[in-house]
Amino acid sequence: MKKILSIILCAMLCISVTGCSSQSNSDSVQASSENVKDTKNYSLELTNGTFKVGEDLDPGKYILVKNEGEFMGSFDITTDTTGDIESSIDSNAFENFTYIKVRKGQYLQLDKCTLYIPSELGDKFDFSNEKELTNGMFRVGKDVEPGEYKLEIVSDDDNAQGWYSLYNNLGGGYKGGPDLQDSDYFSGSKLITLKEGQYLKLDSNTKVIK
């Protein structure tokens, strides 16, 4: 049921995000593909294609970053290449960056985004010292400490809505996919409790004040 909810909310995000303001508070963090641009040669960079885990990349956790100039990036993790809905493990779109976990034998399809090994990016996606976070997926216990937090809407538009998803982990859910704890749209503000090891995903119209 959580898997179905995740897919539905992802589709709603893709449709509604064009109406969301991208305005951000000056103290908020919006990491992007610009963060990874330098002269360093990464040991692994995969983009725009289908890859088999165990052959093209090792099993493990990775970060996906939307390619520069694109509106959104997206990915699909499947058990095979038939295209059947039964083979789907996780499928999602994102505005900025997100984390995934893949297992041997799975297939990963990337569109308009690039995969990196998180440890090779150093502090480029380390937000532990920031006062506010927005537009990305953040690690509880690393980017934000466990506890109760307030989610707020970035836009001044009275009709604007915020959106978030909270995952218990990236690989303990349906078919080894992410374990979704909660995902919802909200107006005004919302209080949530974050636990060690969880992942908090926010859109560009939603921020958390640390």
Rank of each mutant, 00 (worst) to 15 (best):
M1N: 09
M1L: 11
K2M: 11
L5R: 09
L5W: 11
I7V: 10
L9P: 04
A11G: 12
C14L: 14
I15M: 14
S16C: 11
C20T: 10
S22V: 11
S24W: 07
N25H: 06
S26L: 15
D27R: 06
S28K: 00
S28M: 02
V29H: 15
S32T: 05
S32P: 07
S32R: 00
S32E: 08
N35A: 15
N35M: 14
K37E: 13
D38H: 07
D38C: 07
Y42G: 02
Y42L: 05
L44I: 04
L46N: 08
L46G: 06
T50Q: 12
F51N: 09
F51T: 05
D58C: 11
G60Y: 01
G60H: 05
Y62R: 01
I63F: 08
L64W: 07
V65N: 07
N67E: 13
N67I: 05
E68I: 13
E70A: 12
F71W: 10
M72P: 11
D76T: 15
D80C: 06
E86C: 13
I89D: 14
I89P: 07
S91W: 10
N92W: 15
F94W: 12
F94A: 08
N96S: 15
F97P: 08
I100H: 06
K101Y: 13
K101Q: 14
K101M: 15
V102Y: 13
G105L: 10
Q106W: 09
Y107V: 07
L108F: 02
L110M: 02
D111S: 13
C113G: 15
T114D: 06
L115R: 04
Y116S: 01
P118E: 14
S119M: 08
G122N: 03
K124M: 07
K124V: 03
F125C: 04
D126A: 14
S128H: 08
N129S: 13
E130V: 04
N135V: 04
M137E: 12
V140G: 07
G141S: 07
K142P: 08
K142W: 14
K142I: 09
D143Y: 03
D143G: 02
V144L: 14
V144F: 06
Y149D: 01
Y149A: 01
I153Y: 00
D156Q: 09
D157A: 01
N159L: 05
G162V: 00
W163K: 00
W163H: 02
L166W: 01
G171K: 05
G171W: 12
G173M: 02
P178I: 04
L180Q: 02
Q181I: 13
Q181T: 14
D184Q: 00
Y185L: 04
G188P: 03
S189L: 01
S189K: 00
L191H: 05
E196N: 13
Y199V: 00
L200C: 07
L202A: 04
K207W: 04
V208Y: 04
K210Q: 09
